[in-house]
Structure formats: structure tokens, C-alpha cells
Design a protein around this nucleic acid. Structure first.
Lengths: 350, 350
DNA sequence: TTGAAAGCGCTAACAC
DNA sequence: GTGTTAGCGCTTTCAA
């Protein structure tokens, strides 16, 4: 019975029939026109309720070319301060230009990314900013489809195989700069607490780490890369494990961390082990999250322009949305800065 | 010229004319049908590109009753771990039931909330979970409109004046329980670092704080409520200011904080002032964010069931979406727990 | 104050 | 392979 009822969706004419009026009248009620006699209105609202009628937005807006401005954003996860701050940059710019922002998460899953982009076109979202899933073989059919449909989009990372607007941060370069800075200030034992190895950001930082070594007198060794993860607790656990047997002879040592959460977790672990930061171990984070500045040891970190990243992407996107011609492709790389606080120590003046 | 061009939207028949084919053929190309001759396909894609044609999803899906499942969520801000974890609960449930989640932020602004709900109905999102804006006079016309349209929605807080599904957390009760617990464990000097005073959550906690006092031997005084804010830095600054002139005679003292960020900021401030936690000052947070557990002093806090809140709201929403009849209204209150760690000290065994 | 009917932009069936 | 056309569910004239 139920299943059968659901077979056929209730439409405005069903409501009209139930209420004993015409579809025009039902439409007038739905749209709050004052021209409807109260008693008629009541008959109609009753019918709407008994039939559980839900008007279709697409049909309502087919005639009215009511294109409320909106853009979509696909990030990987919500609990990553990096992405949420990028999202805030997007939101800021979007809002000031009259666009509503829809945020979605792909959870680094291709299928979800594809499904979301389809939904964006289906629902007449005007454009999208995408932090693309990049694991293994990039499936990019859905991006080509967006191009075919002239659906404007901006990527937050380069995707091999497709020409598209990209706004990104030069992770490799800044990590390299950072390690060079450590070397110049006298550090010779430098290790890296790396992020999730399937994340492009993690790989880019490893690359930068290696590059700095190869340009210096130091010799790189795979054992210098310690997989840690992305969360506070990962930094804590990895730190505990890595440093538990270390002795005075192993110091000074410096640790370049995948992000600030890892760095803060590591600092907590070292406190537990009674190892001094920065006297024995120098620590550098990445992202410059708010908590890094106010912790026990104010964190030296890399500050990527997160908000600006979002704003710039939104700017380019909206330019494309509002242009009646197809615009040339843009590829913008933003550079990050090193913010030196108290979790690192210079062993000599560079 | 440009402005004039934009007046009239490009439609599929414009493309057909430009390419010298019929609309059926253009449609076939758009939908990737293999029945189109390569040379024709190219003529069409060229025309699509030169006219910058963007097909309207609503028209495409009017015939195909292609209702891809989706739900919307309106939270207040993205940089609040409370809401993002609620959002994760929603996402989890939604995903497991085949729904895509669109997240939006109202920034506690009525106008945005209204605009977003309109967009949800316009774009045939199937239902919404809303953390409602509640400042001053609640404008709830848009919620009544949702009811008129039988658009399913669930509120994350009670809104005066409307009967609707609500899933919420009993902030008042748990704050009261917490303060009673502090009193029972021997504290008599208890203050509250309150949240933003326009936020309902902040007011609910103040209420709970007061209620615990009135049920005890302690006397409440407005000076016990110190407005702090919601962020780490607010806790830090307010803490510095409040404790700068305190002496041994003022301790032991305990501080109930609006949230964990405030509590962590306060701990940092107290370290700076060389005031001992918990020996001199006991501190309690709210939310149980990940960092609280691993900081210098593991934080005693209130643990609201954030994920469950989101899941439950999603469950009720999807039930309503999939029902062909209007379901009875649900109102569910979840209770929070107190997680005791090391930032509080019992002055006597309760 | 209400009803009848044209038409929004597209898809899909069918004809050629 | 491609063109023609009915019709998706609504809104909006225009009559009555």
C-alpha cells in the first residue's frame, strides 16, 4: 500500500482535484498570493497536508528564471582546520558577492566527489571549488563533464590530465625553505613527522624535505621520515614511541611536523618524557592554527594563506560564472611564510 | 554589449541552430549518447563552447524524476568544533542512507538562514537540519513556509512559536549538575567564564549555573559571571585580566568555562601567571574537544553527545523525507556527561 | 476570486 | 544518425 502510493509522486493537479479547485488556485496558495479567498485557501492547505504534497522546486523555477546565486565547495573533511579556514575565505568572498555557499565533503573518496559534482549541475549550483581526490589513478571523467557543460570550477590542487583553473599553495617550496632555515641555524639532526602518505600535501612536504637535504651538506635517509598522521593524538603517540629511548647524546634534534596538531601532540609527549622544547628538541608545525600560538610553548610553524586561498578561488570562480564568454584558464600558486616562535632554537646565528 | 547578451540565456535550441542540428542531437551529445556521429558531435561541442551554453539542471530533471537524495544542514559557523562534529554525525548517517549532505552557515544571521531555506526548497534538497538563529525576536516565517510546503526539517534547538521536530542537548541541566558536583567536592568559590551573551547556549549554561547556586548554601552574585567569549584567545585574555591581581587568599577557586577553548586559553594564562592548576584553580570546560585530553593539564569537561545529536537529527529527518504521510512531531533531548580529568581538584571527598 | 491554457528548457520516444 | 514532438510540474497571463 505504502510502496504503491510512493510509486507516483503527488503533483499540483492531485492537490487541485482533492481540494476541488484549479491548479492555478493551488499555485496561488503556495505562493502566498492574497487574491485567494480564505475559505478556498483553507481547502487547499488541507489538501496539501492530507496528500503530503511537496512542490518541485525545479518546476516552479523553470518558468521564473529565478537563478539564486550559489556556489559549491568540495573539501575532504570537516574536522581539518586547514580546510575549514579555506572554506571561510570562500564564504566571505561569496557572501560579499551575493552567493550562498554549499559545503560538501568527499572524505577523499572518488565516488563521492563525482556524485557531488553531478548534484551540483543537477541542482543548478552556479559553480564549484574543489579540493580534488588524488589517490592513485586519477579518475577525472566527471571533471571533463563539467568542462563539456561549461560548468565553472576551480581546483585547489593541480590534477594531472586536465586543464583547469587552479589556486594552490606551494607546500614543497616552503617546506624546503624551512628545512634550509633549520640547517642554516645550525641543526644537523632533522627528522620529519609525516602526514598520511596517501595525502598529496604529505607527499609534497616530504619532497620539500628531501630537496633541502640534497642542496645541503646533510645526507638524506629514509629513516628520517617517520609516518605520524594528521591528528593531535597521532603526534602524541608517535612522539612517545620515537623518543622513549632517546638519550642526551641524541640531542639537539629538530622535528618538522606535517601539521600543527602533530606538533602540539609531540610537544605534549615530550613534556611527559621530560624532554625540553626547544633546548633539546626543536619543533616546527604547519598551518598556523590558533591554538599553536597560545600553547605551553608557542609554536614555530608555517603559515599558509588559507583564507586568501579560499578568497582567490572564489574570486576566479565568480568571474567565470558571471562571464558570458569562456575565460582563459588561471593557475595561481600562493606562497606560505615561516612564523618563528619559541618551539625552535637557533644553534648558531645564521 | 555584454550586458545585453546576458539578458537572454542561451538555450539548447540556440546551440542547435548554431551547430546546424536539431535539439535532440544536442541533447544526445550533452548526455554522452554514443549514437552521435563524431563529426556531428564535434560541431555540437564547438557550438556549446562558443555560446558558453550551460544546460539547466532543473529542465533536464523535470522529465526524469531524478531525485538524487540530498539533505541540507544549517550551522552557525564552521570554525566551531561543536558544530563540525555535529555535522559529522549528520554526514555519517546521511551517507549510510544514500544522501548527500550540503552544509551551509548562517553566521547567526536571520536573513542568511531564510535565504538558505529558500534555496533548499528551490533546489529540491529533500530536507534540512537547522541550528536556528534565535536572537531577539525570532522571525520564523520561513519555517512556517517550510511547513506549508511539507518540507521536512529538524531543529537543533527549540524555537518559540513553532511546533517542529527538535533534537537538542540539555545544556542547562548538565551545567547545573556540574556546579553541584563542584560544590559537593568542597568548592565554595566558583565563577563562570561565560560565552557570547547573544548565544542561546551561553545563556543556558548561565541558567544552569544559577540554578545550582540557588539549590545550595552558596549565594549567587552577578559578579560571578565573567563574559569571556568563545575562542581560545578570549579565554587567554580574560584569564590574564581576571587573575592578574589575585593572591593566595583568593584560592582555591574554580572556573566553569563556556567551552574547552576558553578553558585551554585560561590554563595558558594561568601558567603565565604562575598560578597552579588544579591546586589553586580548578577548571572545567565544555564540549570535550580532542585537544582537551592531551594538553598540559588534561581537561575536566562536559561531554555532550555531538555525533549522536547529528545522527539522531538525520535519522528523524530521513524518516520524514521517506514517509508518504506527515509524521508526528518528535522532540528529543539528549543529556551530556561530565568527564573528570586533572584540571579539577576535589577539596574533600564528596 | 477562480479557471483554462500557453509555455519555461529539456529528454525520450518514435519516425525517417 | 538525426529530426520532430509530446510532455515533465509548475507559474502566469487572460477570461470569465
Amino acid at each position: 500500500m505504502k510502496a504503491k502510493d510512493r510509486m507516483k509522486k503527488v503533483s499540483i493537479s492531485d492537490v487541485a482535484r482533492e481540494a476541488g479547485v484549479s491548479v492555478g488556485t493551488v499555485s496561488a496558495v503556495i505562493n502566498g498570493k492574497s487574491s485567494v479567498k480564505p475559505s478556498t485557501r483553507e481547502k487547499v492547505t488541507d489538501a496539501i497536508r492530507t496528500l503530503n504534497f511537496r512542490p518541485q522546486g525545479r518546476a516552479q523555477n523553470l518558468k521564473l528564471n529565478n537563478d539564486r546565486r550559489s556556489i559549491g565547495l568540495i573539501i575532504k573533511q570537516l574536522d581539518n582546520p586547514f580546510y575549514t579556514e579555506v572554506a571561510e575565505g570562500v564564504k566571505e568572498y561569496a557572501k560579499s558577492h551575493g552567493y550562498t555557499l554549499f559545503i560538501t565533503t568527499s572524505e577523499n573518496d572518488h565516488e563521492q566527489e563525482e556524485q557531488i559534482t553531478n548534484l551540483f549541475t543537477t541542482k543548478d549550483i552556479n559553480g564549484a571549488i574543489i579540493a580534488p581526490v588524488l589517490d592513485g589513478d586519477a579518475e577525472i571523467d566527471h571533471l571533463f563533464r563539467l568542462k563539456l557543460l561549461n560548468f565553472p570550477f576551480v581546483l585547489l590542487e593541480e590534477v594531472p590530465g586536465i586543464r583547469a583553473n587552479v589556486v594552490s599553495i606551494d607546500n614543497t617550496q616552503v617546506t624546503k625553505d624551512l628545512v634550509r632555515y633549520l640547517i642554516q641555524s645550525g641543526h644537523s639532526r632533522i627528522i620529519h613527522f609525516a602526514g598520511p602518505l596517501n595525502a598529496p600535501h604529505a607527499l609534497e612536504r616530504i619532497d620539500g624535505f628531501k630537496m633541502a637535504f640534497s642542496e645541503s651538506h646533510l645526507v638524506f635517509d629514509e629513516s628520517l621520515i617517520i609516518p605520524a598522521g594528521g591528528r593531535f593524538q597521532h603526534g602524541f603517540n608517535t612522539g612517545l614511541e620515537y623518543f622513549k629511548d632517546k638519550t642526551a647524546a641524541d640531542f639537539p634534534l629538530s622535528v618538522v611536523c606535517f601539521n600543527d596538531q602533530i606538533a602540539l601532540g609531540l610537544i605534549s609527549a615530550l613534556r611527559k618524557l621530560k624532554i625540553k622544547v626547544p633546548e633539546q628538541v626543536s619543533i616546527v608545525g604547519y598551518d598556523n592554527i590558533e591554538l599553536g600560538e597560545f600553547g605551553v610553548v608557542p609554536l614555530t610553524t608555517i603559515s599558509p594563506p588559507k583564507r586568501e586561498l579560499g578568497q582567490k578561488a572564489a574570486e576566479i570562480l565568480i568571474e567565470n560564472i558571471e562571464s558570458d564568454q569562456i575565460l582563459p584558464i588561471r593557475n595561481i600558486t600562493l606562497s606560505a611564510e615561516i612564523t618563528v616562535r619559541e618551539s625552535t632554537q637557533a644553534l648558531k646565528t645564521g
